[in-house]
Amino acid sequence: MDAAGERRQGAAAATFLAPATLVVMVMLMAPLLLLLRFSLNRYDRTELMIETVTGANYLRFFSDPFYIGVMRTTLAVAALSTLLCLLLGLPLAYRLARMQSRWKTACMLGIVLPLFIGSTVRMVGWMILFAHGGVIDAVARWFNGRGMEVMYTSFAVIAGIVSINLPFVVLTIQSTIETIDTRLEEAAGSLGAPPARMFWRIVWPLALPGTATAGILCFILAMNAYATPYLLGGPRFQMMAPLLYWEFSTNNNWPFASALALLLMTTTLLMTACANWIIPARYRA
């Protein structure tokens, strides 16, 4: 094709893409720009938001150990639940991908079914299990006479996040493993690789792109988790999303809430970029 033809085709493509691009720009970029603008404003108890340009909100975040601590907790919880999701999800996804019997459909359904129930409703289930006087507490009391406090601990929050994210992780990894020819595993076997080494040398590297995608997905979801830390973490266990909502709705401090939102987003994006950068180029999806 000559240069003019290419240009013509480019122009045609641009024409067709323009409306969709415009919608995305308006729907996605506008709120973000608004957020950025708000985060530079000043908060006043009586007037709420005063238009100005100041970095005070960001300064407040970085200079107050409380907020840094909340960010650190959020990162730790997200990282830990991502790790757990991958550790639990990988073997599950592998088994599922390699299943051939009619049980596969049933098992797939078992993985997908929790997604039909809203995460808040599922959290209530966990609350019944974890709460003071709840199932775990009652059983523990029956054994040791003292009971066991699980509610409002980091364990409860991580368990809740893992339970919500696991189906996404399993489905993402499983679809990648499905694309790995079982003959590769057989070939590795015939060349003398026992199952564990075969998995490590063949399945793991080939499943890495999907696993990384699943991990990133899980991490983003965990970083932004709201209902889980709010319901299972309680008032003492602070994570970013509930905190910024509290600043926004209860304190009516929109400038600071905007700054928190942008900081949370930036951190998440930075971590995701790092994860993508760590994965060797030839494995990237």
């Binding site: 020819d181 003959r183 590769l184 057989e186 070939a187 590795a188 076997g189 015939s190 060349l191 003398g192 690789a193 026992p194 199952p195 075969m198 063949i202 590297p205 080939l206 030839r282 494995y283």
Partner: peptide
Amino acid sequence: LPPHRREMGLVFQSYALFPH
């Protein structure tokens, strides 16, 4: 014996070369 201890050289129809 499991496959990995049979010491058989196998050439598959699809070759099954390790793509990575």
